[in-house]
Amino acid sequence: MATTPAGPAIRVGDLRMNYGRHEVLRGVDLEIRRGEVVALLGPNGAGKTTTIEILEGFRTRSAGEVEVLGEDPEHGDERWRAELGVVLQSWRDHATWRVRELLAHLGAYYAPYATASHPRPHPVDDLIATVGLTASANTRVGALSGGQRRRLDVAIGIVGRPSLLFLDEPTAGFDPHARREFHELVHRLVDDDATTVLLTTHDLAEAEILADRILILAGGRIVADGTADALARQVAGRAEVRWRIGEEKFVRPTDDATAFVRDLLTGPDGAGVVDLEVRRTSLEDTYLEMIRRHEHGDAAAAALEPAVAS
């Protein structure tokens, strides 16, 4: 194999992308280890899809270093391609084909890249069962529901047993039940095959559930990088204390909620304090704060000081 199993799955340095004079990516740096599940978060237009498409080899970057499974995606050969699984945002293809037919056909492309230790493709019926489409195996693809269609997309993405899987907003348009089933599916896949996964999402809860690590892309740069817990902890120093005295409501941000509350209760108005509430900054608050700063044109500040929330 052309890839070096020891190196990281993805290494990106100072990646830049311009469309005309519009800069979408302004120096993205990231590294993803093999077997890691990483979520790329960010508002619409932040460049998530552009980043993923550059990594998949579907888009030519303006500048920067990119290495995916040891190869530059712009020069990746078919053997390299066989190691990738791709689930893009909107696919309506092969509407007249039947589920099993399509999966068997697309799996056949990977057969020449099978080795004794890494058989390819997945047995089709097992895979159909894994994504819960057994009852629909002979249904035409165009007749599937949105959630079924998405599960088929995922099945197609993994039919060649990729070592690296890209999922671009895999659960957009899902109802909560379908979303939960999808999360279980991804967990199962990752546990079984130690697949490296890079997914984009709008949904923080989803990122928290699925990913070992979260990257936030805003203003064309990675502005935060860490586990969901670590990101929340970066701003956990900041908490919000709310209380009421009589009819008057108070809200105060603080770095040390415990000391603040102690002082508040032992202070002159302590006896009148009711409805006391201490709120830790959540991942969502962190995220929204970073996005807010970016939208106020303060991307540099968002990148430099992710730990401070006002």
Partner: peptide, 20 residues
């Protein structure tokens, strides 16, 4: 039509898919 609905892109995503 197959470019619009993603069939061509799907072919691009699998090894030697475009030729096929």
């Amino acid at each position: 039509a197959e470019r619009e609905d993603g069939t061509l892109l799907r072919a691009k995503a699998v090894p030697r898919g475009t030729a096929a």
